[in-house]
Design a protein around this nucleic acid. Structure first.
Length: 287
DNA sequence: CTGTTATGTGCAG
DNA sequence: TGCACCTAACAGA
């Protein structure tokens, strides 16, 4: 589930398991074998996340850059008795020198060796990351404030804001009663500030609990009721109940107003919104 | 078994 | 805008 919270949690887990230790690096699948050989046996100094990017800083100015893409997985195994044989296509495997921890990377969009300069270049392309304590939302507001593009697109643009993916986008827009196609320049600064503050809190929760949770406490009962009803009437459709407001709930009733949740494609990604809770924006000039 | 879908990105045209 | 990337989970046959 790779939105920003996944990468920050991974960085933490990898840092706990391998940080400041000698790591053996391999590529059972072979695609990363040459690079792995160059860093095998070095000390992993630190693991760090920036938006959806993960960096493993090794001694000797070597950086492993990982981006999970849509379906990449990085499975971290700690406190193990033995290191099991790799299953499936393992692009990169890390094994702690004492054999008590290992981690397997599969299906990543990016797994490459960078210099510190290359790492800095990737970071320079990222907008502020709501999960990072040093994040400054001002440059994101500057971009949004001056843009005719829909807020739904801007929230997913990693050069505007780093770490937000399709789930957080859909949910944050619902929580702020905002239509996804509303032009960025029509937002008031207070609305943006409220959304940013909310993202900081929601994404921190995501890192803590390891999944995206966006439903307010007072709406939990309604969310569970909808999940039960949907499962009953929709048996066989295979949708597992999830406690989101709108993400992947198209065709189901909104738990706040009962309207049917809608979906539509924007730039190749699915938008989800409630037509009543998130009305189309009308500027004063046209109202 | 097959087909579909996915929390993402970058490049070709 | 469309597709390639390349993995896993799931529904249905």
């Amino acid at each position: 589930m790779p939105e920003g919270h996944t990468l920050h949690r991974l960085a933490r887990d990898l840092d706990d398991a391998f940080g400041r230790s000698v790591v053996r690096v391999g590529s059972p699948q072979g695609r990363f074998a040459e690079q792995a050989a160059r860093i095998d046996g070095r000390v992993l100094e630190e693991a760090e996340a920036w938006g959806k990017h993960l960096f493993l800083d090794l001694e000797g100015e070597q950086v492993v850059h990982v981006h999970l893409g849509l379906y990449g997985k990085f499975a971290v195994h700690t406190g193990v008795e033995e290191v099991l044989d790799p299953v499936g296509q393992v692009r990169m495997r890390l094994v702690r020198a004492d054999g008590r921890a290992y981690a397997d990377l599969r299906g990543a969009t990016a797994c490459e060796l960078l210099t510190p300069e290359g790492r800095a270049a990737v970071v320079a392309r990222q907008g502020p990351d709501p999960i990072r304590p040093d994040a400054d939302p001002t440059p994101a507001w500057e971009r949004i404030h001056r843009s005719r593009a829909p807020i739904g697109g801007l929230l997913m643009d990693q050069t505007v804001l780093a770490g937000v993916g399709n789930v957080y986008r859909a949910e944050i827009l619902f929580r702020h009663r905002m239509h996804p196609l509303r032009p960025g320049r029509t937002l008031r600064s207070g609305q943006w500030q409220a959304m940013w503050d909310d993202l900081v809190e929601l994404m921190a929760t995501g890192v803590r609990v390891g999944r995206i949770e966006t439903v307010r406490p007072e709406d939990q009962a309604a969310a569970k009721a909808r999940a039960r009803a949907t499962r009953a009437s929709d048996a066989g459709r295979g949708r597992r109940p999830s406690y989101n407001y709108v993400y992947r709930h198209h065709g189901e009733p909104c738990i706040i107003c009962g309207s049917t949740i809608r979906t539509e494609e924007l730039q190749g990604r699915n938008l989800f919104w409630c037509p009543r809770c998130q009305p189309v924006f009308r500027s004063r000039a046209t109202a």
